[in-house]
Amino acid sequence: MFDIFFVQQLVNGLSVGFIYALMAIGFTLIFGVLNVVNFAHGEIYMIGAYAGWLSITIFAPPLFVVILIALAIGALAGFSLERIAFRPFRRFRDEASLKSKAMREATLLSSLAISIIVREVAEKIFGSNMQTIPQDYLLLTPIEIGPLSFASGQFLIFGLSIVMLGGLQWLLKRTRVGLAIRAVANNPMGATYVGINTERTIIATFVIGSTLGATAGLVVGLYQGAIFPAMGFAPGIKAFVAMVMGGLSSIGGAVVCALILGVAEAVTTSFFAQGWGDLVAYVFLIITLIFFPTGLFGGGRERV
């Protein structure tokens, strides 16, 4: 059983895991700051993919330009999302509202509403079917290393995850914006009292998180050859599971858990029917919640 096919299966699993990880990074960042789940993250991912696809079909720029366009559209989408779905609920500055659970859950639903609206609008405009991607842009070029087969997209996704994770750590630990984000994540009231512009910090978090999400969507769309309105849903669920397993606010933890999920699914598929793969992911989630209620990498007080 432990032959070259098994190794290939691990490669497949890691590549799926990195896809979940790409999504989980932006997800966890926003959760860490606002302490709410951003259900529209999957749609940001889809918007990034469509922005890239539109630019490819309209004027066919080189790939890195396409990625830059997705980044820009992602930033814009993140800004708008925060403005429409999150800011209206922060109008009330009194302590009771800031601590209110109902307020938090309201944004959970408003982001869900935005996600449904955006997805339906995309379906109305582009149709619910998969878009045709020009062959030159597909990240499916086989790269063979010995008996193992990799795709060019797998390296790009791997590289992108490392860059995102590293870049984010640098941003959070070494820059003023990062310091502000960490301060707001840790104690929003305290941050306000010491003169941090909370509003601007929250916007910055959304813009950064959504940029990452949009880029992820584009790269994964090109790697799977599948860009369609509902593309953000399935990886969004897995990213959510990875975030919960990783302790809700630990970005590194979410990435590690995303990789565990991906590999577990692939290995399960190689021994059972594919349907069992999802089951394993959720069994992991439940086991984690029972034995590590704060997640595998949670526990600490400091968020992000």
Partner: peptide
């Protein structure tokens, strides 16, 4: 058998290739 909505068939393909 693959679930409707599957977009990554690599693990199924690897298993089939075995």
């Amino acid at each position: 058998m693959f679930n409707p909505g599957t977009r990554d068939f690599r693990s199924i393909l690897t298993k089939v290739a075995r």
